[in-house]
């Protein structure tokens, strides 16, 4: 939210918490956020096989979900969409 929207931290935390249906306090709680991130496909620490399973999104795949959830244009995601779309 800071990078693409230039939103200050307080507003950014409230915006993200609202989109995730969690409290602002939850955002920095790794216990809460691991479940939220997995449920929403937002990526996480990649302890393969222990934290992330084969169907859990990582890297750019997770970024697609973040862009959609937060309703923001992320340049790498937009670029990937344009490239894959252009090639059918």
């Amino acid at each position: 939210m800071q990078i693409t929207r230039g939103m200050r931290l307080k507003q950014a935390k409230e915006y993200v918490a609202g989109k995730l249906s969690v409290s602002v306090m939850d955002l920095s709680d790794p216990v809460v956020m691991l479940d939220v991130r997995k449920e929403r496909g937002l990526g996480a620490s990649t302890e393969a096989g222990e934290i992330l399973y084969v169907d859990d999104p990582v890297g750019l795949e997770a970024k697609f979900h973040i862009a959609e959830l937060l309703d923001i244009p992320i340049n790498s995601v937009e670029r990937f969409k344009a490239m894959t779309g252009a090639r059918g």
Binding site: L42, G43, V58, G59, L60, A62, K63, I66, S76, F80
Partner: peptide, 10 residues
């Protein structure tokens, strides 16, 4: 890098 990173990468 973009394929592997989830955080904003600049």
């Amino acid at each position: 890098a973009q394929f592997l990173i989830t955080a904003p990468c600049g």
